[in-house]
Design a protein around this nucleic acid. Sequence first.
DNA 1: TATGAATGAGTATTCATTCAT
DNA 2: GATGAATGAATACTCATTCAT
Lengths: 207, 207, 207, 207
Amino acid sequence: MSGTAIASPWKKAPERRHERELKREAVLMAAARVFSERGYHRTSLDAVAQTLNVTKPTLYYYFENKEAMLAACVQHGLDLVEAGGGAEPANGATGMARLVAYLTRYAEVSETDFGRCAVRISDAELSEASRKRVRRIKTGIDRRIRDLISAGITDGSIAPSDPKITAFALAGALNSIGRSHQRDADLTGSKMIGQYIALLVNGIAPR
Amino acid sequence: MSGTAIASPWKKAPERRHERELKREAVLMAAARVFSERGYHRTSLDAVAQTLNVTKPTLYYYFENKEAMLAACVQHGLDLVEAGGGAEPANGATGMARLVAYLTRYAEVSETDFGRCAVRISDAELSEASRKRVRRIKTGIDRRIRDLISAGITDGSIAPSDPKITAFALAGALNSIGRSHQRDADLTGSKMIGQYIALLVNGIAPR
Amino acid sequence: MSGTAIASPWKKAPERRHERELKREAVLMAAARVFSERGYHRTSLDAVAQTLNVTKPTLYYYFENKEAMLAACVQHGLDLVEAGGGAEPANGATGMARLVAYLTRYAEVSETDFGRCAVRISDAELSEASRKRVRRIKTGIDRRIRDLISAGITDGSIAPSDPKITAFALAGALNSIGRSHQRDADLTGSKMIGQYIALLVNGIAPR
Amino acid sequence: MSGTAIASPWKKAPERRHERELKREAVLMAAARVFSERGYHRTSLDAVAQTLNVTKPTLYYYFENKEAMLAACVQHGLDLVEAGGGAEPANGATGMARLVAYLTRYAEVSETDFGRCAVRISDAELSEASRKRVRRIKTGIDRRIRDLISAGITDGSIAPSDPKITAFALAGALNSIGRSHQRDADLTGSKMIGQYIALLVNGIAPR
DNA sequence: TATGAATGAGTATTCATTCAT
DNA sequence: GATGAATGAATACTCATTCAT
């Protein structure tokens, strides 16, 4: 045997691609954080760059422009919701149980930077192209919630109501989580989410 | 007798003050409309001025600066909520009844331009000064809701819960009304508000 | 009589409008000068502003954007050519005489800052809208030259040739005046223009 | 005998140098094409690189910087004119004949990408350094034309005139060929060049 | 040789704000 | 009261250029 291979100082192509991907993600996370903290319009790309110890043009190496960064944040936030799973019809649970699982996931994501971006940014701030894409995802989520409600109504686990309005109200209520400024520990965290959803499930009237 | 008084071309002081007040309100309404339509940061003062057929500097005669206009919009929106009354402890109604009345009012105001301003602007987008002012008003409303909840819990008309979280959830849920883009007729109007609040009161679980 | 009127310190509306017009022209002249000296792309609006002792945003008060300034320069240069007159068919002169008059005017304008702008800027640098406008004027000038050539050929004062190519060559030749860097006194001024045009009229071959 | 030589995977030095030369030329041609199509300043090095399926930094391996590329284009264009020959005093032809040959060559080159680069770039758009270099080459051509004119005047084949102005006018007129946007077939090609030069030789006045 | 990554310097444009009139 | 004019400050975006690999 002719000895051990010497570790090459040059990174291989796949490794490079992976590194780039990592950096892109880092940019995205930084952006999500700053956007959700100071608002999209009040945030300059300089601010984003600074948190990464990079210069502004570097950001353009990873994203076409500021709006693309925002769109990616929003999209990522929304994707996280779907990525949670738990809403599959197959698993034998009641509509209510599946809905609660989904809403919990939704609420949890709303507490992340990405979720806050998704919830805080008005569609009007996105470019036509991004708007369409985002709208499609949001519609998907809305439909998912409506379907779960309908299923629950059918199997008797949810009280009859107009699924459209109910879905709108539930999502809207949960959105306020991401919209609020989470300085208050009581209004953050999984315990709070539990109470929050329990409220939506049971209402405020005594049973 | 010393003859009839000649109509002075100069208006009297009180009349002038009144006129100024009227114009100030006109500016405010215009601002509320445009801000709520395009978002505060995306709206230039030129746009506000244009809808009034005035020039930009004129606005400065009525408001110190752009943020002051926004703050006034928000404040006005929140004032409208309080102005609705119905939350007075004296009138013998249950906490629940008074809470429902208050929330209804809240929801209705959320559909106005002023309400949308109040609800759509994230605290993060305001300067420190305005942020404080707005926060104070919002805190007032929050306290009002909490108090009503507590009263309801005490008189048995509302199920026991943490008033803080419940108030947060209720307000948040209603805010989504003002935040939504009211293109959908089903998701606007007083009928919808009724269903919306009924949902919050009764929850989605069957009773 | 109750005395002489006191000169009001406030300028009257028409005077104001006039003043604005003057300033706009001043901006245009400054732009024409700088553009023609350093080239459109190498000239920053800061440079234009500096020659006027104004700040950059002031320019935007008079022109929509940089390209609009350029377009106005070009248009003004081309307009100057037509404004010269002398090409009217009515005046009994031969086609040749009228052509020479027109070309002389053309050459003279080419020596001005506006003319140099018109001649130096490629159509490609203009916006679609400006391009069309400019192209229309240029076509008009081209047609004017062709018509004069045709008239001259008809009345025998000009040798027969393809008016299209001849017009192209004449205009092209004269354009080089505006394109050259006039540091050389021998290659500027009316005397030079005379010789230049005489050359085009008589050719270089001995007669 | 020591066996057959193994073909080395490394290319010999001269071959390498040659390859490099070829690539450098490829870069130059690509640059000339893009510069002449979109204008020097409006063309980014990315654009040049793209047409070669290379990345931007690669260009720097062959040229010091962007301006050096432009200068090389211009120089190459002007070299092409000289390379045409035909202007040698020795061959017994008249000054006029030699001048016509030279101008024809000049016009032909003006229709190439390199020629267009040379003709389209205004001195004002270049840096001081490049300007000097380009100016020197242009001066060389100008002198050549003047000499031919003088020779023609001397041998009687060209009408007496100021060689300086005449040379300026002839070159200027021919430059317009390269400057025009050759969409019009009538205004391109060798036939047109013939007519163009005939016009300059004979003038437009009837003989 | 060629490239991925990063950057410095520049530039057009917007907009809230001021002020003399 | 209202406006024309002007400005300072900010900011997104571009691009030639560099350098380690």
